[in-house]
């Protein structure tokens, strides 16, 4: 190559040095100390707080004549409820897990109906300007009615406590599902609608292939609020309607002055409510994976 040619075309003058990266070590041992540290970070702080709160509670309620039992008394008198949730001594004397299960069955039916109806009605409102104008003000008023206010009416209508309790759950959970679905559907990008129009998707295809996936993050927000509200409503409704269930258990314990039982039941309700919330959130995250990131 002549010197002239070198001026005309740019030629890399030097070769870059090549460094070899060390090969990744083949023994893939799990780093237990790291795992343990991670677990410690998320477990120890709440544990410390719980122990502290128990201690304060113990001190506060240990005075003679205290109106509420301290933790030690709860453990003594309601211990079996804590460590054996699955006992069944017959005659309606059953463990808390069974009672929670009975309540969960009602929630499953009521919330399931609310999810189906809520998504369908929400999609309708989100699609149609006139449906929104007509229905939205009514929904905005109805959704502020407290769950238990529906109970007398539904008892009168169904003449039975079981469907009434389910109806109360339904009517409590359905509003956030409707409203969130409608917002989600209204926010579907116009481009997706154009794509559907060019492909001539019919309304049913559009609903399943575009509307539901596009609005899924909104729908699951609504469902998550809905499941929380249903769990709130079921406990209150069961206190009034009776039968088997965690809500009635609390009412029954109050009537027979078993305060430690009530405290244990409260913890159960809290834990189950938390798990329901996580369940719906996790399910939503699984379904909508890839949708949020665009």
């Amino acid at each position: 190559m002549s010197a002239e040619a070198q001026f005309e075309t740019a030629v890399p003058s030097k070769k870059a040095k090549v460094f070899a990266f060390p090969a990744p070590s083949s023994n893939r041992r799990v780093d237990f100390s790291k795992l343990a540290a991670g677990a410690a970070r998320s477990v120890i702080p709440p544990l410390v707080v719980v122990l502290l709160l128990l201690l304060i509670w113990q001190i506060a309620c240990s005075t003679p004549g205290s109106s509420l039992p301290p933790p030690s008394v709860v453990w003594e008198q309601a211990g079996e409820l804590i460590w054996n949730p699955f006992f069944d001594y017959g005659n309606g004397d059953i463990g808390l897990a069974w009672r929670v299960f009975a309540s969960l069955q009602r929630v499953a039916v009521g919330f399931g109906l609310a999810a189906l109806v809520g998504v369908a009605v929400g999609a309708f409102i989100g699609q149609s300007v006139w449906a929104m104008r007509g229905l939205d003000p009514i929904f905005q008023i109805l959704r502020t009615v407290p769950p238990l206010a529906w109970l007398p009416l539904s008892l009168a209508a169904f003449r039975d406590s079981h469907p009434s309790a389910i109806f109360v759950i339904f009517i409590t959970a359905v509003w956030p599902v409707i409203i969130n679905t409608a917002v989600g559907v209204r926010n579907i990008p116009n481009d997706y609608r154009n794509v559907a129009a060019i492909l001539r998707l019919n309304p049913i295809e559009f609903f399943f292939k575009v509307m539901v996936p596009a609005a899924a993050p909104y729908i699951f927000t609504g469902l998550r609020i809905g499941i929380g509200l249903s769990w709130l409503a079921i406990v209150a409704a069961e206190m009034l309607t009776g039968g088997v269930g965690i809500g009635f258990f609390i009412w029954d314990a109050w009537n027979s002055s078993r305060l430690p039982d009530i405290i244990v039941a409260l913890v159960y309700i809290g834990v189950v409510g938390f798990m329901l919330d996580r369940l719906v959130a996790g399910f939503g995250a699984f379904i909508t994976r890839g949708t949020a990131a665009n």
């Binding site: 481009d191 996936p213 949708t291």
Partner: peptide
Amino acid sequence: SEPGPERAVVFQNHSLLPW
């Protein structure tokens, strides 16, 4: 008179369905 696949559009922002 209406949109249809015989007049396909490539949109400026691709408009692929992200899911």
